[in-house]
Design a protein around this nucleic acid. Structure first.
Length: 597
RNA sequence: CGGGGCGUAGCGCAGCCUGGUAGCGCAUCUGCUUUGGGAGCAGAGGGGCGGGGGUUCGAAUCCCUCCGCCCCGACCA
């Protein structure tokens, strides 16, 4: 039996000053975790217990569709070189050398390693499909660890990888994961939403994230309350209202206008008495392209043009140009590509590369500029703008793409839906995507098909952040006194609080009740500390245990008190009915979360 | 990497500007009283002020430098 008096549960009355988000404050205050360094945490008794419960659920569900492996966390350079990600991962990968000077890295994800196994072992279509998973520590040299366990440099991830003979097979593996993930998050008591997502540096086509709405989150989700459309802002689109075009002036060709000091969109709009939607904004970037085998990476100029009232979405821009990293141009780089200064940059007169990220300038225009006319744009000359600018007639581009972020209030992109998008913050707890052939191809995995022909298996990759499930659950359920977890992932289901351990009757009653609860299969913590009742109540409220049974004054009459943490309500129960009631409550909760979502 | 802030006892903080050898609350330990929402009284222990260097008779306080942590931004499978 777990007796609080013997355990190490270092609760804190005050949280460390640098803990900002609720989950961070409470994880530390409740003695779940202690910080060791920036983004590096020790998980103590309660924290580890809760994580183990989460892992238990993940494993149980994953075992329905996949086979568990355990891969190393420290990895040689070769597989990463083969996939092109040794360079592609950039500074986010922890790298080290062994005593012989050989390059190694700490695994941030395991596509390469799983693919190595597949390449070495899989020979026939008869062996497919395969789905392999593991639960492992991942390492990422985050530029900025933050928010307790939300963004860390070492964390636990369930990652799985599917190998299929064809696209239909991949679809099936993807759908299996989608279904299993929904079960897992539901069992963990999370209110989550599945959204369309960008596939980022992983490559691939379809990509779906599982998100929990919380202000502590770092992702933005656009969703439609009418039809249920939901997408990460890195991916979301919207339907734009038509813009009333400006009147044509003069002969209708671009006309140079002196606009002294009008460097900002707002200045230009005011000067011409136009809406910012009729002004063309230019944002100049340098984009990094991964070099061909053995070649170093190269940087190329990219000019992004979009409506003055829109914001560049750098993830979309990167995707459109096939670059791996963006940074804004420095002044000396601007002069290399443009004849005018920042604030007066425009598309007219530029010579776009035919293909993105070549030696010259890559010009990307947002799709919302296509078909527009009589726009205002910078003239690439200090204190001058052009008007009557018509995209396509007056300037051309390397490519047109959706490179802007949608805004709250814009129309839902789904055909026939009249909803308006809302944008909210969320934290990503899982991600599934169809990788395609990126890894199997580059690393040379092949099997024979029924015709004896060599084919490359198609892959999927699927992740769940274990700590993030805990963090999201806390963000979702806390008050000023602490937090409460669903019984399924709480370190204990019920705490038996003996209000006065010096009273022999109470002590014995508590011991007996705790033993009974344990015998009934519940995870019980007996608070047998020689503390005042108030102290024990405060601690119980703090540490996330969903149920508490107070053994106190009324024990002499054969009554104890069952307190439900989530609602802060209590009922008196006959001692001999307490166990059954707690079991019943826990089962009801499980049912509720099962229908929830 | 850019901007800002902070490092003094386990936690939260004061002291630094105007140098004189470190303090408060909580926590901890002992005793007595108390015992249903972080008890009261009395007593005790614990740090030499992130590290190094410098200025000075004297540095937590001033200067230099390095390290660490947090926040905003950049970044983020």
């Amino acid at each position: 039996m777990h007796r609080w008096s013997k355990l190490f549960i270092p609760t804190l009355r005050e949280a460390p000053a640098d803990a900002e988000v609720a989950s961070h404050r409470f994880l530390v205050r409740s003695g779940y975790i202690r910080q060791l360094g920036a983004g590096i945490y020790n998980y103590l008794f309660l924290g580890q217990r809760s994580l183990n419960k989460i892992i238990g659920i993940v494993r149980e569900e994953m075992d329905q569709i996949a086979q568990e492996f355990y891969l190393p966390g420290i990895l040689p350079r070769e597989p990463w070189e083969q996939s092109g990600r040794w360079a592609g991962m950039g500074d986010n990968m922890f790298r080290l050398k062994d005593r012989k000077g050989a390059d190694l890295c700490l695994g941030m994800t395991h596509e390469e390693i799983m693919t190595t196994i597949a390449r070495n072992e899989l020979r026939s279509y008869k062996q497919l499909p395969q789905i392999w998973y593991q639960i492992q520590s991942k390492f990422r040299d985050e530029p900025r660890p933050k928010s307790g366990l939300l963004r860390v440099r070492q964390f636990t991830m369930k990652d799985s990888y599917s190998f299929d003979i064809d696209k239909a097979g991949l679809d099936k593996s993807f759908d299996l994961h989608d279904a299993v993930y929904r079960k897992i998050f539901t069992r963990c008591g999370l209110k989550f939403v599945a959204v369309e997502a960008d596939s980022g540096s992983m490559g691939g086509s379809q990509s779906q994230e599982f998100m929990v709405y919380t202000d502590a989150g770092e992702d933005l989700i656009a969703s439609c309350p009418v039809c249920g459309y939901a997408a990460n802002l890195e991916k979301a689109t919207s339907r734009l209202d038509p813009v009333v075009e400006m009147e044509t002036t003069g002969d209708g060709t671009p006309e140079l206008v002196s606009t002294p000091g009008c460097a900002a969109i707002s200045d230009v709009a005011e000067f011409f008495k136009i809406s910012p939607a009729s002004d063309i904004k230019c944002v100049a970037y340098m984009a990094r392209k991964v070099g061909a085998k053995g070649e170093p990476d190269t940087w190329h100029g990219v000019a992004a043009f979009l409506r003055g009232d829109h914001q560049v979405n750098e993830t979309k821009l990167l995707g459109a140009t096939k670059g791996v990293e963006l940074r804004t141009m420095q002044t000396d780089e601007l002069t290399q590509y443009f004849s005018g200064p920042a604030g007066f940059l425009g598309p007219v007169g530029l010579k776009p590369d035919a293909k993105p990220l070549e030696d010259g300038l890559t010009v990307v225009v947002d799709k919302s500029l296509e078909g527009r006319k009589n726009l205002v744009a910078g003239a690439n000359k200090l204190d001058y703008h052009l008007r009557n600018v018509v995209p396509g007639r007056d300037f051309s581009w390397t490519l047109a793409a959706d490179i802007r972020s949608v805004n709250e209030g814009e129309s839902c992109p789904v055909d026939g839906c009249a909803g308006k998008l809302v944008v909210g913050k969320a934290v990503e707890i899982g991600h599934i995507f169809k990788l395609g052939y990126k890894y199997s191809e580059s690393m040379g995995a092949k099997v024979l098909d029924p015709n004896g022909k060599e084919v490359t298996p198609i892959m999927g990759s699927y992740g769940i952040g274990i700590e993030r499930i805990l963090t999201a659950a806390i963000e979702q359920s806390n008050d000023k006194n602490g937090f409460w977890l669903p019984a399924s992932i709480a370190p204990f289901t019920v705490v038996v609080t003996v209000t006065n351990i010096g009273d022999a009757l109470l002590k014995e009653t508590g011991e007996a009740l705790a033993a009974e609860l344990e015998a009934a299969g519940l995870d019980v913590l007996l608070d047998d500390r020689d503390e005042r009742a108030g102290v024990k109540f405060k601690d119980a409220d703090l540490v996330g245990i969903p149920y508490r049974i107070n053994v106190g004054k009324k024990a002499a009459e054969g009554l104890v008190e069952l307190v439900t943490r989530a609602t802060a309500t209590s009922v008196d129960v006959k001692l001999n009915e307490a166990v059954a009631l707690v079991k019943e409550r826990v089962q009801e909760d499980a049912l509720l979360t099962a229908v929830g979502e």
